[in-house]
Design a protein around this nucleic acid. Structure first.
Length: 467
RNA sequence: GGCGGCAUAGCCAAGUGGUAAGGCACGGGUCUGCAAAACCCUUAUCCCCCGGUUCGAAUCCGGGUGCCGCCUCCA
């Protein structure tokens, strides 16, 4: 079996064929770091982190690159408003980005290039485009000749003549054609700038990704990802730049994740209807947020609300509880093997189901359904009087393996075992032996008030902290 | 005006030709001193509407309705 990916370029699911056997090169457009990220921005981070993890799980050597746009109009605007300089702001929000996203279980990319650190390559890229006749200078700006690239529109399936260029794009007087877009912008007075053959200025937005992908991954990469709203014009422009220069396809597979909506409308900074990850992880378990996002297929929109997050929390807890149940039994179980073969086989089936679902365009929604099934099977197994440590361990291994692929963790940081709690449980046990249930319940209520939940299992009392 | 997506139970959500996964919520039961956790059962005769193709469609085709997105910075 192999992995199938929905390719925006062809609008079809295609069997993944790596450029180089056993290797995957992935480039994902990262954030412009002028503010904290909102949960809509977090979606591609989570989605492509999961894609990366899955490729690794399937034995691929993954090269994962994701950039930071650390200089552009918005950063300059923010700098002016805050009275700080661009690098300071960029640095602050790059730091915040890593913090927010790592709380959500997103691993760092192999490489996080920044625009300001890729300046020579960007300038060289533009220079070569001019040399090849695909771009021209105009009073310190450099523009790409969109109509010179005959495949323009192939990603978003737009005909170049149908674009509402005149109507909505402000036609710069310097442009020869309204469809042309900026590769280099001349610096205005006092703006942060870099020296270039065309004078002081800074790169346009699209060129950075073309330059970085080329620099770190090569002329053609396997997968290029990002949010749906980047398909046009950002990715379309990247393709134009890169393919004109390199004369090779920029990426073989283009993946685009759907939006997070609020009240059925796209969450965006411009609409103002956003929730910052920074704030949200103070209120909610970040793992629940990740679980919530992965419970929907990555290409479909997610309507966000606190109610749905609560429901996701209950769901994730169900899986966590099953895992804890198995662990608890393992810690007290003697190895009385029974039906080992049957259960080992069952566990392997679950693993294969999971792989089958993930192979199908990373269907995490169905993969999570397999986790629920695993939870159910594990709980059923625990109803048997005698359990095998082999099977219990296999269940634990399965849970850890599969949730690991999704970037989910099942345990929270172990809090110190409170001797007072243990003592109270002891006292309650005594009370129960004496059938002094009033006192027993009192102790249980007391502990519950401190978020300690007691469970009287056939194998003894266990306690846990409420999540 | 161009391009695209979505519409499945109270809610969320898979499924794209073979007779409706899963989760949350609800109800009944088992277990328990009572709980907790767990398990079992129940919950859409049907997948926005109207036609068509087919032995057979939620799934394909045509038409319609509604919602959303891109075409401007945006994940």
């Amino acid at each position: 079996m192999s992995i199938v990916i929905y390719n925006t370029l062809t609008r079809e699911k295609e069997t993944f064929q790596p450029l180089e056997e056993g290797k995957v090169k992935i480039y994902v457009c990262g954030p412009t770091v002028y503010n904290y990220i909102h949960i809509g921005n977090a979606r591609p981070a989570i989605v492509f982190d999961t894609v990366r993890r899955y490729f690794e799980y399937r034995g691929f050597d993954v090269q994962f690159v994701s950039n930071f746009t650390d200089v552009d109009d918005k950063l300059i605007k923010a700098a002016n408003e805050l009275g700080e300089d661009v690098p300071t702001i960029a640095e602050r929000f790059i730091h915040a980005y890593h913090e927010d996203v790592s709380a959500l279980g997103v691993r760092k990319a192999d490489c996080h290039p920044r625009v300001t650190e890729t300046m020579p390559e960007i300038i060289d890229f533009i220079d070569q485009l001019i040399a090849k006749g695909y771009a021209y200078e105009a009073e310190g700006d450099v523009y790409f000749k969109t109509r010179a690239f005959e495949d323009y529109g192939k990603l978003s399936h737009q005909s170049i003549n149908d674009l509402r260029s005149g109507a909505r794009i402000e036609i710069g007087e310097k442009k020869h054609d309204p469809l042309d877009f900026a590769l280099w912008k001349a610096a205005k007075k006092g703006e942060i700038s870099w020296e270039s053959p065309w004078g002081k200025g800074r790169p346009g937005w699209h060129i950075e990704c073309s330059a970085m992908a080329k620099k770190f991954l090569g002329d053609t990469i396997d997968i290029h990802g990002g949010g749906q709203d980047l398909a046009f014009p950002h990715h379309e422009n990247e393709i134009a730049q890169s393919e004109c220069l390199n004369e090779a396809p920029m990426a073989r597979y283009w993946m685009h994740n759907g939006y997070i909506n609020i009240n059925n409308e796209k969450m965006s900074k411009s609409l103002g209807n956003f929730v910052l990850v920074h704030d949200m992880i103070k209120e909610h378990d970040p793992q629940v947020i990740r679980f919530f996002m992965l419970a929907v297929h990555y290409r479909n929109p997610i309507n966000f609300s606190n109610e749905l997050l609560e429901s996701a929390k209950t769901g994730l807890n169900r899986i966590r509880t099953a895992y804890e149940n198995v662990k608890h039994r393992l810690s007290i179980s003697a190895n009385l093997a029974q039906n080992e073969e049957k259960w080992t086989k069952k566990i392997e089936e679950l693993r294969q189901d999971f792989i089958r679902e993930m192979d199908d365009d990373f269907n995490t929604a169905n993969a999570i359904a397999v986790l629920f099934e695993a939870a159910k099977e594990a709980n059923l197994y625990l109803q048997e009087e005698n359990t095998s440590t082999t099977v219990l361990s296999a269940f634990i291994g399965l849970f850890e393996e599969l949730t690991g692929v999704l970037g989910l963790t099942l345990t929270k940081e172990e809090e110190l075992l409170d001797e007072e709690i243990e003592a109270l449980i002891q006292e309650r046990n005594e009370a129960r032996k004496e059938r002094n249930f009033a006192r027993a319940d009192e102790i249980r209520d007391e502990l519950r008030a401190k978020n300690i939940i007691l469970e009287d299992t056939p194998q003894g009392v266990r306690w846990k902290r409420q999540s």
